[in-house]
Amino acid sequence: MLGIASPELALAYILCIAASVLCIIYGIIKWNDSGPLTEELRDLDQWAPGPQDD
């Protein structure tokens, strides 16, 4: 497949691209997700660029 003799190594080639796509999709879905915030975290969270800065 793809000119690569070993099916295992062709899989590695495809998985590299798949892992990169996973990172992109995760980053887009979670773009504005700060997770659960305690008071301490909320204070610090204000320093992070928010949706208005994107």
Partner: peptide, 14 residues
């Protein structure tokens, strides 16, 4: 400063 910056870093890093 925030988890959301790590989420964005996943995209850039990937």
């Amino acid at each position: 400063a925030s988890d959301r910056q790590l989420n964005r870093a996943v995209l850039f890093g990937g």
